[in-house]
Structure formats: structure tokens, C-alpha cells
Simulated assay, not measured.
Amino acid sequence: MERTYIMLKPDALQRGIVGEILARIERKGYRITHMKTMQLDEPILREHYAHIVDQPFFPPTVEYMTSGPVVAMVVEGENVIQGMRTLMGPTKNENAMPGTIRGDFACSTTYNVIHGSDSPENAEIEIRRFFGDI
């Protein structure tokens, strides 16, 4: 059984759409095995977004990601990494099709409501980062 890390970003909580997103994940047949609400800080965001720390859009990303709590979760299922990425839709909301989470809920590329791991290796790194050794 494959597992992945999924995070509902502050705008999902601020807009009250967490329940709808969780329902979509569960209706797809995936199992949420761990879930918690947490407030992120800059040190963990520097680690999580190490690949963009030097980009001009990193400071606004930190501001957005610290603007409210997030919902962190571990989701399991067959081919769940690719399946969740399909369910989420592309990061750029203008490319996300209706019926995907981002296609239906993202307001912009920055405010795109959800994050999901992009590979088995990154899934394990992100799960450890946010949940420790589970």
C-alpha cells in the first residue's frame, strides 16, 4: 500500500472547504491514516520549500502559509501519489480542470488550497517532516 503526504493550506481552512476536500479524498477510495491541524512557522517552511527559498515569491509564500493553520495528513491507497496528484489538478490553477480540487477551489497559483507529495521519496521525507517516524 502506497502512502503520501497531503496538506490543506490556510485558504482551505479560511474558506471552510476542508470537509468537501476530505470527502473527495475518501470518495476516491483513499484512506486518511493520520491527520492533524497545525500552525507552520518559517523554519519548517524553509525546509519544506528549500527548492524555492532563493526565489522572489518565497517571502509571499511564507506569509501565506503562516496566515493560518493547515491540515496535515497521511493518505494511503493503491497508486495514491499519482492518484492524489490527478485529483488535486495542476499547481497553476488556470491549468486545473473543473472536477479537480484546484480546478474547483483554487483562487490563484499561490492560493491553491492543497499540497501533495510528487514522488515516493518525497512522500516519506514530508511525512517524517510533519509527523515524525510513523
Rank of each mutant, 00 (worst) to 15 (best):
G16I: 08
P10E: 05
Y30Q: 02
K28D: 01
T86P: 04
A106I: 07
R85G: 02
L87S: 02
L45C: 07
S67L: 08
A72K: 01
F131P: 10
G83W: 03
I125D: 13
V113G: 06
T109K: 04
N122A: 12
H48S: 14
A23R: 00
G103P: 05
M35K: 12
I32L: 05
I52S: 09
F131S: 10
I114Y: 04
I25L: 03
R129G: 15
V70L: 12
G19T: 06
S67A: 13
N95V: 07
Y64L: 06
D41M: 13
R102I: 02
E94T: 13
G29T: 02
M1P: 05
E47Y: 10
M7L: 08
Y49W: 12
A106E: 05
T33M: 00
H115K: 07
T86D: 12
Q55W: 08
P10Y: 10
Q39E: 15
G132N: 11
I32Q: 07
M73E: 08
M73I: 15
H48F: 14
I32H: 01
T86Q: 11
M88L: 05
F105L: 07
R102C: 00
I21F: 00
Y64Q: 07
M97C: 14
Y49N: 11
M73D: 04
I101Y: 04
N95K: 14
G99Y: 00
R15P: 10
Y30N: 07
G16Q: 10
V80Y: 03
V74L: 08
F57Y: 08
T33I: 06
L8P: 00
G29Y: 01
D118F: 04
H34L: 10
I17H: 03
G29W: 05
E63A: 14
E78F: 15
M1D: 06
R129K: 15
F105K: 06
E121T: 14
G99K: 03
I101N: 02
G116F: 11
G99T: 03
I25N: 04
T4S: 11
I114R: 04
T109A: 08
E26Q: 06
G116P: 01
S119R: 07
R128F: 12
Y30L: 00
K36N: 04
T66V: 12
P43S: 07
L87R: 04
P56D: 05
I101F: 02
A12E: 05
D41N: 11
Q82K: 13
F105D: 05
R3F: 03
N112T: 06
R46G: 11
H34T: 12
K9Q: 08
D133F: 09
N95H: 15
G132V: 09
D41S: 14
E63L: 15
H115Q: 10
G99P: 01
G29R: 01
A106T: 01
T110C: 13
E94V: 13
T33D: 07
D133Q: 12
M73L: 09
N112F: 01
N79E: 12
S119Q: 11
E121F: 11
S67D: 14
A72D: 09
V113T: 12
G116N: 00
G89H: 00
G103N: 04
M65I: 13
S117N: 12
Q82N: 11
M65D: 13
R102W: 04
Y111D: 13
Q55S: 14
Y5M: 14
E47W: 09
F58G: 09
I127K: 11
